[in-house]
Simulated scan of single mutants.
Amino acid sequence: MKRAKKLLSLLIAAILLVSLSSCGGSKGGGENEAALGKYNALTYSFGDMTLDATGDWLELKSKGKATISVDGDEFACKWKLNGTDFTLEERGDIFKGTLENGVIELNLEGIVYTFAKPGFEPATSPESEEAPVVTAAQDLADSEYADEIAYWNGDWYGWWWITSAAGDWAHLSEKYYDMYCTINLDADGMGQMMFWDDDAGLMKLEVKLDTNNSAPHGILVSTKGYLWDFDYKPGEWVIDVEDNGLDYENLWTFEGTYIDPTPDEAGSQFDYFICMRPWGQNWDDIEDAGERPPGYDWYVGELSSGNTMPEGLGYGVLSP
């Protein structure tokens, strides 16, 4: 999680360095004097990832001047408030947000920062009435898909291999990493798959269980999902432990391609191959060590110690 936070901090600092280093804009008017003061950062969010932003701050000064501090770097800029609409502005580059009841929500190129004056807190949203991704254990047990859901739900461990890479990602060609995955299906066989490695969050998929086939555990089919900033088409992922091309039990594979939507170099992309088994599964039936995860010795030690799978690292856009 610390690695993910550092990456986002660097991304925010880069955005501010480019866009705010010579800030100019409308001044805060006299009617906005109540808004003056220092706002401490609480969190920043990107996609499904929300991280602690303690230590960062934003100070609104008179005559529309302001200073924002991110990860120890300070940037001078100017601010404007119109009702509750708040902006930091620089020659056409406008960062929009809101300021209300001592709390600022500011969108920095898709990264949403929350700042608050001392003594103020963001308004809490009422709890969602939507059903959780995973229903109560009894609901799962009563599901017509109970056996299949019990098989898929839980933690999976394996590896992913960058089989070829080009452009901005050429340096990853032939790289080989441990991979982790958590699957959560509800009583209707709908749910999510989330993937990460030791450095970053990777894929996140919404999937459905399909039992209209001969697979003893059914298959999982994606309805939507993404790898960083690259979206998958519905049905692009099909997970079947019986059709993995390898003669090993409780193992599934997938081949895919990541195409960089915003490359520095045209044609930047990479192809990858994934191989996964349930956390706790022994891989000794695979004699070739090159077909086991690169951290397999570590994994065996974790199992011997009774440890659970490492926590996910979040899901966001990461630089090459």
Rank of each mutant, 00 (worst) to 15 (best):
A4E: 08
I15V: 09
G24Q: 09
G28F: 04
G28R: 03
A34E: 14
A34S: 10
Y44F: 15
F46P: 00
F46Q: 12
T50L: 03
T50Q: 14
T50S: 13
T54D: 08
D56S: 12
K61F: 00
K65C: 02
I68R: 05
V70G: 01
A76E: 14
C77Q: 05
W79M: 00
W79S: 00
L81F: 04
D85V: 02
F86A: 02
T87G: 00
T87P: 00
E89A: 15
R91I: 06
G92P: 02
D93P: 00
E100I: 02
L106H: 02
E109N: 13
G110V: 01
Y113E: 01
K117P: 05
F120C: 15
P122L: 07
P122Y: 05
T124L: 13
T124F: 12
S125A: 12
E127A: 12
S128Q: 10
A131I: 09
T135G: 15
A136R: 06
D139H: 04
I149S: 08
G158S: 03
G167W: 00
D168G: 11
K175M: 10
Y176L: 13
C181H: 03
C181M: 13
G189F: 03
G189P: 01
Q192G: 04
D198H: 11
A200Y: 09
K208H: 10
K208S: 12
N212F: 04
N213E: 11
A215E: 10
G218E: 07
I219F: 05
K224A: 06
K224V: 14
L227E: 14
L227M: 14
W228F: 09
W228K: 09
D229E: 15
F230T: 03
K233P: 02
K233M: 11
P234M: 12
G235I: 12
E236T: 03
W237T: 09
V241E: 14
E242R: 03
D243P: 01
L251N: 11
F254Y: 14
G256L: 07
Y258N: 01
P261Q: 09
T262S: 13
T262N: 10
P263R: 06
P263E: 15
Q269R: 10
Y272T: 04
M276K: 07
Q281D: 06
N282H: 06
W283C: 05
D285R: 01
R292S: 06
P293E: 13
Y296I: 04
W298Y: 10
L303H: 08
T308W: 04
M309S: 11
P310F: 07
G314H: 10
G314E: 10
S319L: 09
P320F: 03
